[in-house]
Design a protein around this nucleic acid. Sequence first.
DNA 1: GAGAAATTCGGACACCTGTCAAGCAAACTG
DNA 2: CAGTTTGCTTGACAGGTGTCCGAATTTCTC
Lengths: 231, 231
Amino acid sequence: MRMGRRVGGLVSDEYESKVGLMKKTLGGSATRVRKRPVDKFEDRRMQLADAALVTLAEQGYARTGLRDIAERSDFTHGTLHYYFHDKAELITYCVRRYKNRCIARYDSLVQDGETAQDVLEAFSGAVVSTMIEDARMQRLWYDIRSQAMFEHVLAADVAALDRDIEDMIFRVVLRYAELSGREPSLNPALTYALFDGLFLHAVMNHLAGKASESEVRSGIEYLLGSVTRPV
Amino acid sequence: MRMGRRVGGLVSDEYESKVGLMKKTLGGSATRVRKRPVDKFEDRRMQLADAALVTLAEQGYARTGLRDIAERSDFTHGTLHYYFHDKAELITYCVRRYKNRCIARYDSLVQDGETAQDVLEAFSGAVVSTMIEDARMQRLWYDIRSQAMFEHVLAADVAALDRDIEDMIFRVVLRYAELSGREPSLNPALTYALFDGLFLHAVMNHLAGKASESEVRSGIEYLLGSVTRPV
DNA sequence: GAGAAATTCGGACACCTGTCAAGCAAACTG
DNA sequence: CAGTTTGCTTGACAGGTGTCCGAATTTCTC
């Protein structure tokens, strides 16, 4: 008579946000273009995810239980399983959400630059401010990326995200090279590895209290020059 | 009658290996130079730690319980608390043990090189073989370093280890620079950050099945040249 | 070999984990 | 307005966690 949990969307093993679609085809006539009920479900997922991100960023993946997350949201732990059928799905959804925001931010920031100097300053400025204001979120990313080396449930999602970040970094380098009459001297993977190391240590140092804004700035400037060469 | 657990050493909050000393002063006459009883305790700690490292490398920090560790050793979980009064102490002891071995290995390996080419080849060869054979141990290190960003019990130990590695890397760079008539162009922290990024991604890629031995080799060669400059 | 100390075991403790399902309220549908 | 779907809560479940302790066993010392 009742359904224990939402039929269709949630039971699917695909983590993609096809839930909306499935619900629409489920609701009945496709001509009902008022997409309200569709968005409502996805909206709540996002709201829950944002609340979860706060707790996750504070406590880390391993130490955060679903009840901790629920406590700092407007709902109880049962509700989490209504919108996410897994802890893993919730976590990957959260991280993907956060990281996609980051990537979009960096993309628009760098695309706006019109000179190489613009790009360099915009990029290093963004990195520094991310390091300072988003340090706790960043450490969550590094935490989950580490966990993904052990929990293969996370592996695929994390790998995909990491590839997106790699692409984003390489777009920055390409743009910088293009504007300064240079070309990349390393492939995207190596380029990303170096920037990632720089950024990871920036975050760790910052969290450890060793402020290093100028060092990070000079590191980025050095690295941007180092991974490109005169064409 | 009996003592619930070892008096002195273990109750101390200092994780340093002063246990041996305390036991000696406890045993009685200091002229009893036969250090057998001293070593026995420390020996068992090492034996336990080595067994623990196997399990930890396989399952990661968060997913490994003390019972898992004990299961793959010759003892039961109760014994672990006899030799380590904390899970944190056991873990940091393990990681410190492993990392110190690594550092010693790299040090001797590089010190033996007599030309810049020697150093380069020895270093990149060691990195590649570590990446391949020790991938699971390395991911444990990255795992625990991430956890240390959340659990302040681990923070101090991990930070100290990270500093040791940073020093080791800079010794390699210094040696390479010296032998090739160059000098470092970055401070130790930035130098380490770049190498660490390279190595971290090498390990991740390797664990993900994307073999990249030649890419790592060329990355190291590039980086060694990049973080030094003609004097 | 007797007595004491060091070691090891196995079970208990209180707590926390993700998952699930039954019950109820609210919103929507005809 | 009746009936159905959706949303959310509460409580239970089975299992796992680190920690601790009493007792049995081994090892050492005189």
